[in-house]
Design a protein around this nucleic acid. Structure first.
Length: 425
RNA sequence: GGAGAGAUGGCUGAGCGGUCGAAAGCGACGGUCUUGAAAACCGUUAGGGGCGCAAGCUCCUCGGGGGUUCGAAUCCCUCUCUCUCCGCCA
């Protein structure tokens, strides 16, 4: 969430950065007004409370004879400020409602724009393979009997898949390869819970605004949510903690299933397994000091790129425009892999810097020598390294042979006991 | 699922209605001493918010929430979590 103090002190700049993310200046003004009113009442209330505290203390040392009168006075004073409490609460709630649903500021370098058409390509790597009449992954994989969408639909529904035989093995190999790559790059592996509480979803910004995108599970009197990405449990690892600055940057990676309701994406990517309710993803998460963050984003994005390069999959890197960025993001790079059957690049990784937006929500701080012993919010970053399901699709399609078989990328072969080609089960 | 015990500052742990954001020990940091280090000694050491140019003043927080009271870490209610025993179980 945003820093109200910064919003107060640097209103014009904040409005500008928020405009990129389609937040109106009126909405900012509304928050500032509420904030102003709230602080005024808070000061008023606290002054009366201070007086009340002084009287209570005086009673403790007063003579028994004086006490009854003093107690009466104290009671009367309390009546004078009790009514302010609900007012303060109401203003606070109203302010929070806005604050909690206002997106992060965009970084200066983020291009203006409303949607994906305004994203800016940064670079390309590799050359799309020359395949005549490329087949899509569904056709290829179904024929090889490594993918079964019909039975997936039967047992769960649309947007689910069943991988079989070498299809399942390939998925597992990809996950293991990615994890090995990232742990070698310095990310400590974690296996977090796949269900999390509402506080965690709030911490990373999924709640309260995007509840409809999540799978919710009733649990006793409360509820849990299936994680849409490992970003949620891994970032929340350090919620409500103060880290020693010497451990920063702190880098984790995790391979988890991800669950998304895909509400609102009806009709999009209905063919194949590009957009699923459940998929695997290796996530990279980093916590660092503010002055390390910009560089950390480049680094982390590079680690995601390294996987694509090792797999020799052609891709491009783009920077998202303000209008296409996620709610919590300060700056985002997307990596898009070449999908032959669609003759285009498709998102396979999204790497974001969240400035202190998530850290403020989740209360993740650090301190040390450089902060003079004071606590300060960390910056959080994360990125896919990579989405396993989409990588699976990319491998199947980019490595397809005229006879319908799939050759296995060299780096993956050790993970498949030396298998060089999938020809059938 | 049944029975019991507990949750206090970085850690251990006291406090069980007033002067307690909180003893003591440990740890950490700063200083004295030392060629340097250790030891010893002295000091500092929770988080969040409001007002203020600042110095400073002040509010809230002793697992979370609510209540009783002039006053709560201390009393009551409730929730969560941890531990022990029994049962069940991947």
């Amino acid at each position: 969430m945003l820093d109200l103090k910064a919003l107060r002190e640097d209103t014009a700049a904040c409005k500008q950065a928020l405009a990129k993310k389609r937040v109106s200046p009126e909405s900012v003004d509304r928050m500032l007004t509420l904030d102003e009113e709230k602080r005024q009442i808070q000061t008023q209330l606290e002054n009366l409370q201070a007086e009340h505290n002084r009287r209570a203390e005086a009673i403790s040392t007063a003579t028994p004879a004086d006490r009854p009168k003093m107690v009466e006075e104290s009671k009367a004073l309390k009546d004078k400020f009790k009514f302010l409490e609900p007012t303060l609460l109401k203003l606070g709630n109203e302010l929070n409602e806005l604050l909690f649903t206002t997106p992060n500021l965009a970084h200066d370098s983020v291009p203006e724009g409303n949607n994906e058409d305004d994203n800016v390509e940064i670079s390309r790597w590799g050359t799309p393979p020359d395949i005549k009449n490329p087949q899509d992954h569904v056709a290829l994989a179904t024929r090889l009997d490594i993918l079964d969408l019909d039975r997936a639909a039967k047992i769960a529904g649309a947007r689910f898949s069943v991988l079989k035989g070498y299809g399942a093995k390939l998925e597992r190999a990809l996950g293991a390869f990615m994890l090995d790559t990232q742990t070698k790059a310095g990310y400590q592996e974690v296996i977090p819970p796949y269900l999390v509480n509402p506080e965690s979803m709030f911490g990373t910004g999924q709640l309260p605004k995007f509840e409809e995108d999540l799978f919710k599970v009733p649990f006793g009197d409360d509820k849990l949510y299936l994680i849409p990405t490992a970003e949620v449990p891994v970032t929340n690892l350090y919620r409500d903690e103060i880290l020693d600055e010497t451990i920063l940057p702190l880098r984790h990676c995790a391979l988890t299933p991800c669950f998304r309701s895909e509400a609102g994406s009806a009709g999009k990517d209905t063919k194949g397994i590009i957009r699923q309710h459940q998929f695997h993803k290796v996530e990279l998460v980093s916590f660092c000091k503010p002055d390390q963050a910009e560089q950390e984003l480049e680094r982390l994005t590079g680690h995601a790129e390294a996987v694509l390069q090792a797999l020799e999959l052609p891709y491009r890197k783009i920077v998202l425009c303000g209008g296409d960025m996620g709610f919590s993001a300060h700056k985002t790079y997307d990596l898009e892999v070449w999908i032959p059957s669609q003759n285009t690049y498709r998102e396979i990784s999204s790497c974001s810097w969240f400035s202190n937006f998530q850290a403020r929500r989740a209360s993740i701080r650090y301190k040390g020598e450089s902060t003079g012993g004071k606590t300060q919010l960390v910056h959080t970053l994360n990125g896919s390294g990579l989405a396993v399901g989409r990588t699976w699709v990319a491998v199947i399609e980019n490595y397809q042979q005229p006879d319908g078989s799939i050759t296995i990328p060299k780096v993956l072969q050790p993970y498949l006991h030396g298998l060089e080609k999938i020809t059938s089960l």
